[in-house]
Computed example of a mutant assay.
Amino acid sequence: MSANKNSFKYKFYGDIMPKIYGIGAAVVILGAMFKILDWPGATLMIGIGLTTEAAIFFLSSFEPKHEDVDWAKVYPQLSPTYNGDGMPLMPQSAVGSTPMKDSTTQKFDKVLEDAKIGDDLIENLGKGIKNLAASAEKLGSVSDAAVATSEYADNVRNASRTLVDMNQSYSKTASALVEMSSASTDAKEYHEQVVTVTKNLSALNAVYEMELQDANSHVKVLNKFYSNVSAAMEGLNEAGKETEAFKNQLAQLNANVSSLNKVYGGMLSAMKG
């Protein structure tokens, strides 16, 4: 953070921004809860929550870089040149010189010792800061979780409606089965009637078969009679033709006789004269 602790940026990002992080996270969680429980105004609340989160991330992008504190000045054990004797190794140029502890460092060590702040506590403090940073990074996934939860809720509602439709279908099927069961007696009587009708039809078919055979016999007799009549008609036609020829020959014979009579008459007349 900037060295000027009285600047607005230092106060804003040091005092106000942590509160904004907490309030923004609460708004996002509240919007997600509205969406998950499908309360009225859920869409508006999730929109407000995501907008708040986006604004927080936007502001955090301008947060100044924190200054790295050289803790090796206070705790020599943190120095990469520490030799295990309580003091860091001195550079080669300073070999032979007597290291001097700063009085301020000694006072600070005494304060920490009086407050019983040891290496374990400082290590736990470092772990806590790392966990806090990890939690801040995971805050960005809340929006994704809210969206996924919304989709899950929609799928659950669709599945519920499907189950209701299936229950209605099963109820209708059960009612139909009950009606079919109650109608089994009527179906049995109907089956008996159908069997009786089938027997009657079989008897009628037998009678019809006999009548059909008799009709076929009569048809055969009639066909034979018609064949004989046709033959007789053909004979009559032939006789008619022969009669016509005989008639023609008889007429010709009469004509010849008449001619002979005329000739004989002429001859007789000539002989008398």
Rank of each mutant, 00 (worst) to 15 (best):
T104P: 03
F108C: 13
F62I: 13
M90I: 04
S79E: 03
K138P: 02
D119Q: 10
L50Q: 01
K73G: 05
S79R: 00
M90A: 04
K110S: 11
L121M: 08
P99D: 07
G140Y: 04
L125V: 09
T98M: 08
E137H: 12
A94N: 05
L125T: 10
K130L: 09
L78N: 08
S103D: 14
I117E: 03
L139K: 02
E123M: 11
G128W: 06
L121D: 07
V111F: 12
T43K: 10
K110N: 09
E67Y: 08
A54S: 10
P80A: 09
A134F: 13
S97A: 12
W71P: 00
F108H: 07
I117M: 06
I117N: 03
L59E: 05
S135I: 10
S97I: 08
E123T: 11
T81M: 11
L125I: 15
A94I: 03
P99L: 05
D102G: 10
V147H: 00
G118Q: 02
G126H: 13
G84L: 02
I117S: 06
L50A: 11
E67S: 10
F108Q: 09
L44C: 11
I56C: 06
Q106K: 14
D144Q: 10
F57P: 01
P76L: 09
G128S: 11
M45P: 00
A153R: 03
W71L: 07
V111G: 04
T43I: 15
L59M: 13
D114S: 15
A54C: 09
A148I: 14
S79D: 14
S141T: 14
D109R: 10
K116H: 06
S141V: 07
Y82H: 05
